[in-house]
């Protein structure tokens, strides 16, 4: 079969990214211009600033993606872009650039869901086995998504308040640690011990939903108490205890869901899947089961365009094209 080449663009948050993916599984190039250092001093992503930087980077990044893949626009079969969810002003840059390229070269245009992208990042490493469960954990998402076939998504659990990554950022802030909190807390937790018994929120029996706001409050209260008593605060121990609580709940709920739905493969996706404790704990819990565990390499966990190209491949084969009136959809749902 002829393998299609897709040029993919992703600008949903603070990375300007473009990639060329062949046949949904082969990476020809993957260019990411991160704005991390720009937003760091503000303690979080500033949407207007993100949009301003995307527009300065967009053609450079696309140019580099084509060059590194050693393909011309004529050889590209379709243009894919993240249409949502994300920051609307940021999404608009990618969407309008993609529409322009599709128009200028008369190529099919494909709008991709950002989370579908995170899941399909794994297909650049390993073929999918259905039914498949994905744990999607990032700054904006904590979801368990069941897939029975390509392009078919069912949310069986999601967070009722904070996303896991959001809880990390808030705890980091309470500990006077820099943004983003995930990598810093992961590193500190590595050096500390679980000395505090922070709550684990299991919610009602049988539920695969998550809740992290109670945990975040418990951690903040603990820090407050220690400060009032003038007791030394071991950031490493608090980080280790907090992380243990998050990982316990994520892993156990994922395991239960995987058993209940009889899945053949588990995928961990999204920025938080870079977390070492989560990776280790998932591997341990699923050891001895016949469920294949896939966690993408770090460069495919964080936002990138290769994952958008991988997800777009399925839509390309199903002729699911967008028209030139495609818009950014900040609240786009994954379920159809």
């Amino acid at each position: 079969m002829d393998q299609e080449k897709i040029l993919a663009i992703e600008t949903s948050c603070d990375e300007t990214a473009a990639a060329v993916v062949e046949g949904g599984t082969t990476l020809l190039s993957n260019v990411v211009a991160t704005q991390m250092d720009i937003h760091q001093k503000f303690g979080g992503v500033v949407p207007e600033l993100a949009s301003r930087h995307h527009i300065e980077q967009i053609t450079l990044v696309i140019d580099q993606a084509l060059n590194e893949a050693e393909v011309t626009m004529e050889e590209i079969d379709a243009i894919a872009v993240t249409e949502g969810p994300g920051l609307v002003g940021a999404l608009l840059i990618g969407v309008n650039a993609a529409k322009t390229l599709a128009f200028a070269h008369q190529k099919p245009l494909i709008g991709v869901h950002h989370i579908a992208g995170h899941i399909y990042a794994n297909r650049l490493e390993q073929e999918f086995q259905f039914p498949l469960l994905s744990l999607v954990v990032s700054g904006g998402h904590t979801e368990l998504i069941l897939m029975k076939e390509h392009g078919d998504y069912e949310i069986i659990g999601e967070t009722r308040d904070d996303a896991a990554g959001e809880a990390y950022d808030k705890v980091a802030k309470a500990l006077d640690l820099p943004y983003p909190g995930g990598p810093v807390i992961d590193q500190l937790a590595h050096e500390g011990e679980e000395t505090y018994d922070f709550p684990r929120s299991w919610l009602e029996k049988g539920s695969f939903d998550f809740s992290f706001s109670g945990l975040k409050t418990a951690v903040v209260n603990q820090i407050h108490q220690l400060k009032q008593k003038n007791e030394p605060i071991s950031k490493a121990n608090i980080a280790a205890s907090f992380q243990a609580s998050v990982v316990d709940v994520l892993v156990e709920k994922t395991y239960q869901a995987a058993q209940q739905y009889g899945v053949k493969q588990l995928i961990v996706a999204g920025g938080v899947s870079a977390n070492r404790a989560l990776r280790r704990s998932i591997q341990e819990r699923f050891e001895g089961t016949n469920i294949a565990v896939s966690i993408p390499p770090l460069y495919l966990c964080t936002d990138n365009a290769a994952m958008i190209g991988a997800a777009a491949s399925i839509q390309y084969r199903n002729n699911q094209y967008a028209s030139l009136n495609l818009n950014a959809q900040p609240g786009l749902m994954i379920e159809r």
């Binding site: 527009i55 053609t59 626009m73 309008n96 322009t100 200028a104 070269h105």
Partner: peptide, 19 residues
């Protein structure tokens, strides 16, 4: 309008670059 400007300028620069 910031958003309006970015839509026009993104479209214009992408078109000029790719052509």
């Amino acid at each position: 309008s910031y958003t309006g400007l970015r839509i026009g300028v993104t479209t214009a620069k992408t078109l000029a670059w790719t052509l």
